[in-house]
């Protein structure tokens, strides 16, 4: 046991506080659901007291200095999770306690119920928007940008010409081409994939070119002493060195792709898709359904991002930015 006695005692107290506050929050939520009248002042004092106690618990967790690596990682995962759970709890308490109209902001419990009740619809929308438009557009957009970057790699002239234009294009509101793509490629997913391709192309192009040029004289000389040809240098040295840049673009693009596909659906879709569902259900004031769809989008977006981050960790484990910080 490397964790000292006082640390483990404090860890125990913090956990106890967190569990206790969560239980009392659960009781408060049950009470708030049963209220006919707006609850009394005492109820809110109780809410604030429990919340402050929970904050104190999180604060204790954050100030712990744990030597055990596994435990440390678990705690640093626990802190944001607790924070998020408390955000949901306060949301629930405020919406049910103040009787906020569900049209404005439904409580998380209602969103959860709606989510569970309409999984087939949500799955169909997810399939249409994410599995077709986003993934296909993402692969084609990033893939073509990668190929173009390699193709113009041997021409410094083209690189110098395309880099500023690529940088400029990355800063432009490219979502605006959505109506044009819908006109050209019709209402179904190909038009959305086209928007995604255009949106993801330039960040990938700029980052790949920058990555391919991110090597030092010494590294290039070493390859020369090995009598390596252009392709050998590319595959054995320059591409691996470009990996952090490429993954950076892949990560940026994962959120851009989802945004592009959903926004493109506002300009016309068949009767399925996440953007379509959001815009029609807003019109019908079914706000809980909209929130359920947003939850799907958030989950899909986070999972997509997380998958790429994981892939990056696996394939660029050697890079300094990935090394574990052993000092702390």
């Amino acid at each position: 046991m490397t964790t000292s006695a006082s640390t483990s005692r404090r860890l125990f107290i913090a956990s106890a506080i967190s569990v206790l506050t969560l239980i009392s929050a659960f009781v408060l939520i049950q009470k708030a659901l049963a209220f006919e009248q707006p609850p009394s002042l005492m109820f809110w004092v109780g809410v604030i007291a429990v919340w402050l106690a929970a904050w104190f618990g999180v604060d204790m967790f954050a100030k712990l200095k744990i030597k055990n690596q596994m435990l440390d990682r678990a705690v640093s995962l626990l802190i944001p999770v607790l924070f998020g759970v408390w955000l949901l709890i306060l949301w629930q308490l405020i919406t049910t306690g103040f009787k906020v109209p569900t049209v404005l902001l439904p409580p998380p419990s209602a969103i959860g119920a709606r989510f569970a009740a309409s999984i087939p619809t949500l799955w169909a929308d997810f399939q249409q928007t994410f599995l077709k438009a986003v993934l296909i557009g993402y692969v084609l957009g990033c893939g073509s940008a990668f190929i173009v970057a390699i193709a113009i790699d041997r021409s410094p002239f083209l690189q110098k010409g395309l880099m500023p234009i690529g940088n400029l294009m990355s800063a432009l509101p490219i979502v605006g081409v959505a109506p044009i793509m819908v006109m050209w490629f019709g209402f179904d997913w190909p038009s959305k994939a086209a928007v995604v391709i255009i949106m993801t192309f330039f960040p990938m192009l700029v980052n790949t070119i920058a990555g391919l040029n991110d090597n030092t004289e010494i590294q290039r000389d070493l390859m020369k002493t090995y009598a390596a040809g252009y392709w050998q240098t590319l595959f054995k040295m320059r591409l691996p060195l470009a990996m952090p840049f490429i993954f950076n673009a892949l990560k940026i693009n994962s959120t851009l792709a989802l945004i592009g596909a959903i926004v493109a659906e506002f300009f016309g879709t068949p009767i399925v898709g996440m953007g379509f569902r959001i815009s029609t259900e807003v019109g019908r004031m079914n706000v809980d359904m909209v929130w359920a769809e947003i939850a799907v989008a958030a989950l899909a977006g986070s999972a997509f991002y997380g998958a790429i981050a994981l892939l990056e960790k696996i394939s660029t484990f050697w890079h300094p930015s990935m090394r574990q910080n052993k000092r702390a």
Binding site: W55, V58, D59, F61, A62, K63, S76, I79, P80, L82, F83, G84, V175, S254, T255, L258, I259, I262, V263, F266, M274, G275, I278, S279, V282, V287, V290, E293, I294, A297, A298, G301, S302, F304, Y305
Partner: peptide, 25 residues
């Protein structure tokens, strides 16, 4: 330190949520 550990992960994951989808609502 508490804000760093509790808020920062949410700041980052807030951007994986396609907010533009929420815009109409």
């Amino acid at each position: 330190r508490t804000l760093d550990k509790s808020l920062m992960p949410w700041v980052i994951s807030s951007q994986t949520i396609p907010i533009l989808a929420v815009a109409p609502m």
